[in-house]
Design a binder for these strands. Structure first.
Length: 662
RNA sequence: GCUGCUGUAGCUCAGUGGUAGAGCGCGUCAUUGGUAAUGACGAGGUCGGGAGUUCAAUCCUCCCCAGCAGCACCA
């Protein structure tokens, strides 16, 4: 007999090999029906898996949503794989986990056909439903590793065989049977049968290529994605959320609101339209006020530098594949087009600003009294990114960073990092973001001794602790192996209005580049010392940050950022004169305002400016003209507020004031 | 860069082996209307680029470019 302790503290003596399902049945028929899995000593397990020793047992029901979703999604993935193999014999299966909103399975289509496409999905979905309706029991079986490898090899499942062969020798591996005719190697757990899944709670969403084991050098498989839930209501809710997110897509809003465009002749580089560039200019002005107040000096450095400079900084060796390289020569003017002689020196567009900032530091002789020296630049960089990586404003080939480098002494690092934490905190809050901070620790491939890394990691950790931000409330987390090769880094992850996260800000300490580029200062002792260089950014890049803001605000920018802050719209042409007066006064008060005196009905104008997300619409007809008032209709509200022109100017001026100036 | 899909008017999209169509937008005219689309008329496209098959290609084939989704990449 073994002793099983339940969450309420009660214990039961049961025969060895009793299953959680047996215990649920013994407790009551309601629980027997509701229980879908079990936690045995904290580990999630099949409800039909026998308990072999004394244990703490908690039965899992669909009310334990996180566990239930995880189980269901994992099962959906198995059902997907079974369906694909049933429909397309010869397909090899590989790996199929659950995801944040569903599941996927990577399969290798049989050689007789190409990769799977979207067109295959409806039939696969139908087959999955058939498997669910058949309510096939999911049975766990333990097999010897070697027997399993042989079995996979015989079945022509080379990927599965390869994988099993990498698991420790002599280990027993579990497989799961779906009925008696299909199995997959899997650690589990699973629901008791396919019928526990809701056939209306999943949808296959897309097909994409994915490399075997995530390695570019391996064969590419077909990854079939699905979204999976416990019931149809959850699925519908999820699909609705996806639609809502799609409406916020910055590429769509960028076009609708006439903010920017991209075109193939300059792919990966943004054409900013007047409306979009107004947002940029406001952000730039905001950031200048921020860095001026925080003791930074702004600089501007060359776009193109000689390759020798990049060799010295190390970029030529490590980063050249992503650099735009240009010959320093006058092109021929023959009809055939430019020919590169091969004799010219190479130059390159800067992919980063750091070396140029070190070169500024190196001009003249710096004293310890000059430190910390904080050099800021709205630095326009070019990086030749893999074409498949480009994405709207989020990943571009030309971008402008809010980039600064702080040159300081060892003993100033913690203080500087702490000050940066405070600055970043203020900025992110003023844009309405919450955030978490993560510390990316030393990677496998790195420069420097372990002692140096201990020191560098401690400095960053220390600063965040002292800033009081290293708490779970701020999502503090340490990420082993994620640091840069020369230094650990702190990362700021923003959470936007609909709960998505974006990594933007960063600060990292660097002792490598000052060494390579021979930056030094004269210390109190009269000797030369190496400064430490802190690389830091808050927006990350203007392009990406604006993209994030568009999605965060769903295009409804706060007034201070809105490209057009107000429109004065007339009801009849008799009010045109008054409308122009109002517009002129608002302009004089610094409001970005336009007059709409077109020959259109007020309904039309209201609709158009609402769709364009103009924050305030000032409607004027003869009534307002005679009384010197305006009727303000604000975005997001149906009503109107009648007020005098002076009151309106006060209100708009206040709202149009950037948060840091209020 | 890899796999798949897509590329037709400014935008969203139909469509056909015999040199193209809608809605919105744009222009003109009428209308002066009180809070989410007034009506009529009109202009506008060498159907992403190149090559091939064909009497004939926007449509079929091949190559290239770009976009989308995912993968890989993002010191």
């Amino acid at each position: 007999m073994i002793r099983v302790t339940l969450p309420d503290g009660s214990a039961r003596e049961v025969a060895r090999g009793t299953t959680p399902a047996d215990i649920a049945a013994a407790i009551g028929p309601g629980l027997a029906k509701a229980a879908i899995a079990a936690r045995v000593d904290g580990e999630l397990r099949d409800i039909m898996r026998p308990i072999e020793a004394d244990a703490e047992l908690a039965l899992v029901t669909t009310r334990d949503e996180a566990d239930a979703l995880e189980l269901a999604r994992h099962d959906f993935a198995h059902v997907l794989a079974e369906a694909v193999q049933t429909l397309f014999p010869g397909t090899q299966i590989t790996f199929g986990p659950s995801t944040d909103d569903g599941f996927y399975y990577d399969v290798m289509a049989p050689a007789t056909r190409g990769p799977f496409t979207m067109d295959d999905l409806p039939a696969i979905e139908e087959q999955m439903r058939a498997i669910i309706r058949a309510d096939k029991p999911l049975r766990r079986e333990v097999m010897a590793r070697d027997a399993l490898i042989t079995k996979w090899q015989n079945a022509g499942e080379s990927f599965k065989a390869e994988w099993a062969a990498e698991l420790p020798e002599g280990e027993e591996l579990s497989v799961y049977w779906s009925g008696d005719d299909w199995m997959d190697m899997c650690r589990g757990p699973h629901l008791a049968s396919t019928g526990k899944l809701d056939p209306a709670a999943f949808k296959l969403t897309r097909v994409a290529g994915a490399y075997w084991r995530g390695d570019q050098n391996n064969p590419q498989l077909s990854r079939i994605y699905g979204t999976g839930w416990l019931n149809k209501k959850q699925l519908d809710g999820h699909l609705l959320r996806l639609e809502e997110a799609a409406k916020r897509d910055h590429r769509r809003l960028g076009q609708d609101m006439d903010l920017f465009h991209l075109q193939q002749e300059a792919h990966g580089s943004v054409f900013w339209h007047p409306n979009g560039y107004l947002i940029w200019r406001e952000l730039e002005a905001y950031m200048r006020r921020a860095i001026d107040g925080a003791g930074y000096k702004e600089v501007k450095t060359p776009q193109v530098m000689d390759a020798r400079q990049w060799e010295q900084s190390g970029h030529w060796g490590k980063y050249r594949a992503n650099m735009f390289v240009i010959p320093d020569e006058v092109p021929n003017v023959d009809d055939e087009g430019p020919v590169i002689s091969g004799d010219a020196d190479w130059m390159a567009l800067k992919p980063m600003n750091c070396p140029a900032h070190v070169l500024i530091f190196r001009q003249g002789i710096k004293s310890y009294r000059d430190l910390p020296l904080r050099i800021y630049e709205n630095g326009c960089c070019h990086r030749n990114e893999p074409h498949g990586a480009l994405h709207g404003l989020m990943r571009v080939r030309q971008f402008t960073q809010d980039d600064a480098h702080i040159f300081c002494r060892e003993d100033q690092i913690v203080e500087e990092v702490q000050a940066f934490c405070a600055l970043a905190d203020r900025v992110y809050k003023e844009f309405g973001f919450t955030y978490s901070i993560k510390l990316a620790l030393r990677p496998e491939q790195r420069f420097g001794s372990d002692a140096d890394w201990d020191k560098a990691e401690n400095e960053l950790r220390d600063a965040v602790v002292r800033a009081g931000l290293a708490t779970t409330e701020f999502g503090w987390e340490e990420l082993p192996g994620e640091g840069a090769f020369y230094a650990p880094k702190l990362e700021w992850h923003l959470t936007d209005a609909i709960g998505r996260t974006w990594q933007v800000g960063t600060i990292q300490s660097d002792r490598v580049l000052p060494e390579r580029l021979d930056a030094s200062y004269v210390g109190e002792d009269g000797a030369r010392h190496r400064p430490v260089m802190l690389h830091r950014a808050i927006f990350g890049s203007y392009e990406r940050f604006i993209g994030i803001l568009i999605e965060h605000y769903a295009g409804r920018f706060p007034v201070w950022l809105a490209p057009v802050q107000a429109v004065v719209a007339t009801i009849t042409s008799e009010a045109d004169g008054y409308a122009h007066d109002v517009t002129a006064k608002l302009k004089a008060a610094g409001i970005r305002v336009e007059a709409d005196t077109r020959n259109e009905k007020i309904n039309y104008k209201v609709r158009e400016h609402s769709v364009a997300k103009v924050p305030h619409l000032l409607v004027v007809g003869m009534r307002e003209a005679e009384e010197g008032k305006v009727a303000i209709r604000s975005l997001g509200s149906d009503g109107q507020r009648i007020m005098t022109l002076d009151e309106a100017i006060d209100m708009l001026s206040h709202e149009a004031t950037p948060p840091d100036l209020r």
